[in-house]
Design a protein around this nucleic acid. Structure first.
Lengths: 168, 168
DNA sequence: TTGGAATGTCAACAAAGCTGACGTATTGTC
DNA sequence: GACAATACGTCAGCTTTGTTGACATTCCAA
């Protein structure tokens, strides 16, 4: 055995070696940096950060969502989200309206300005994703998503699946 | 056309729709959270953070690396890295030795304790990666890595490639 | 009707990134 | 040998984004 692996392991399990796993870990690290680089540049111009991007993205995807729901999607404390939300509301990118049925709730929507920023951010991020998809090809994309989905926590997967098939 | 797409588009380019790209973006977001969750728990016990993990990981992978080299891999400022490095050295997890050839340089190594923590962290992270790989299968793993590599910045890809085939 | 649960806000603090300036030791070059 | 460049460390100060604790408002159920 020139590869130094136990004979019973064979080719079928080669992808589970520590070496392969480590490469996957490092690939995640470096790729995530690229993944956030383009939106980060746009955000820096307006002195916003990634937290603002995440809030804007998921408000766009869940119009009328409550603070609590957004909280469970983003997985941060409400105080942390509140700070971000406050600046977005002050700057007129997000609107917060008191709930009809339950007046404790606030329903969040993007304003025209908020939608414009969302568009700019997601265009930038999609451009890179598109280039990566194109370079890797359709079969690779299927595998990419399968591994990512398997890597999620249960809670994340629920949120992910819930938004998955909603129309754009 | 029941799918409402232009005829010339066909199946081959379906994976480049905005819808598919958005799913990829959200998958990256949720998966990355899972990716860091397990090490984060271990780090929190010792009041360390992700920055310490990154330093430990890449010192492990590049034993004897200089501060400057680590800086360019991590892509942070030296002040930021220095804060992390200082605590790791004080706590006896990393050793810093003056260079033989160039005495301005410091060469970084993990101590026994540092290696033990590295092992604990990477075991936890590998366990999740292994589970994801196993669930998705070998072909998916190839695609996963292809897309991630295509998503990296040039600089990141250089660092990634340089470490790729080095023995564990 | 009242007490507890839920929703959201404010205050203060910590981790970790950043810029800018500066000091020291060492190296390499003119 | 003088002097610029390099490698590293550090101080000060700021920003973003996470945390916990305290608190007001609203709803619901005993």
């Amino acid at each position: 055995m020139s590869d130094g692996l136990p004979p019973q392991m064979g080719q079928s399990l080669l992808f589970l070696t520590d070496e392969q796993l480590r490469k996957g870990i490092e690939a995640m690290f470096f790729a995530y940096r690229g993944f956030t680089a383009d939106p980060d540049r746009i955000l820096a111009e307006q002195s916003y950060g990634r937290a603002h991007h995440r809030a804007i993205h998921f408000i766009h995807r869940n119009p009328g969502t409550t603070v609590n729901n957004l909280l469970s999607i983003l997985g941060v404390t409400k105080q942390s989200l509140n700070r971000v939300l406050r600046t977005l509301i002050e700057d007129g990118l997000v609107s917060s309206t008191v709930g009809q049925r339950d007046k404790r709730e606030r329903h969040l929507h993007l304003t025209t300005d908020g939608s414009a920023l969302e568009r700019a951010l997601s265009d930038a991020q999609r451009d890179r994703m598109r280039a990566a998809y194109r370079a890797a090809g359709p079969e690779a994309v299927v595998g990419f998503r399968q591994v990512l989905e398997a890597m999620m926590d249960e809670d994340s997967r629920h949120h992910y699946e819930a938004m998955k098939d909603r129309p754009e």
